[in-house]
Computed example of a mutant assay.
Amino acid sequence: MTIVEPGVFKTRLGESAVQPPRTIDAYAPAADQLPRLYDRTPGNLEGAAQTIVSIAGRPDAPLRFYVGNALDDVRRHYHQRLDE
């Protein structure tokens, strides 16, 4: 079994997302830091899909498989959280 952890990909998923009519001030600091936390460059969706299919069912497949950009950012944030 492999847990696929996808990064940022350009898809149509967010096209129907609705922006709230107003923001909540308490969330502003978190929202402001999001662009600096992770590389938001979309990954190669077709390449990721092919890679996922290639490891599916393999006995040597990893437990966790991150696809997309910003893996170094994700690792850094995981380690920071674990250290806390």
Rank of each mutant, 00 (worst) to 15 (best):
T2C: 06
L71C: 05
L45Q: 08
Y78P: 00
R12L: 11
V74G: 01
D83Y: 00
D39R: 03
P6W: 11
D32T: 05
R36H: 10
V4S: 11
A26Q: 09
V18W: 10
V18D: 06
T11A: 06
G14R: 10
Y78D: 11
T2F: 10
G43R: 12
L34H: 06
T41A: 10
N69A: 08
R64H: 14
Y27T: 09
I55K: 02
D73K: 12
F9V: 04
P59Q: 11
Q19Y: 05
N44E: 15
Y78I: 15
D39N: 15
S16W: 02
R12S: 13
L45F: 14
A30I: 15
Q80C: 03
D32H: 02
E5N: 15
N44H: 14
V4C: 12
V8D: 05
G43L: 13
E5R: 14
A61D: 04
R58I: 02
A49M: 10
P62Y: 01
A56T: 02
I55G: 01
P20S: 08
R12V: 05
I55R: 12
G43I: 07
R40S: 11
S54A: 15
L37M: 13
R36W: 04
Y78G: 00
S16L: 07
D72K: 08
I52L: 11
H79C: 05
Y66G: 03
N44W: 05
L34V: 15
P21I: 04
G14H: 06
L82I: 06
A17E: 07
S54F: 06
L82N: 04
D83G: 02
Q19A: 13
R12F: 04
Q50L: 08
N69K: 02
S16C: 01
G47T: 05
S16E: 07
N44G: 09
Q19N: 14
G7F: 01
A28I: 13
K10F: 10
I55T: 07
P42L: 11
L71Y: 02
F65N: 12
A26R: 10
G47K: 15
V67F: 06
A56P: 00
G14A: 12
V74E: 02
N69C: 08
P62G: 05
R75L: 13
L13S: 05
G43A: 13
S54I: 01
Q50N: 14
R81F: 09
L37G: 04
P42K: 09
P59H: 08
I55A: 02
T23G: 12
T51V: 00
N44M: 06
G68Q: 02
A70N: 11
T2P: 14
P59D: 15
V4Q: 11
D60I: 03
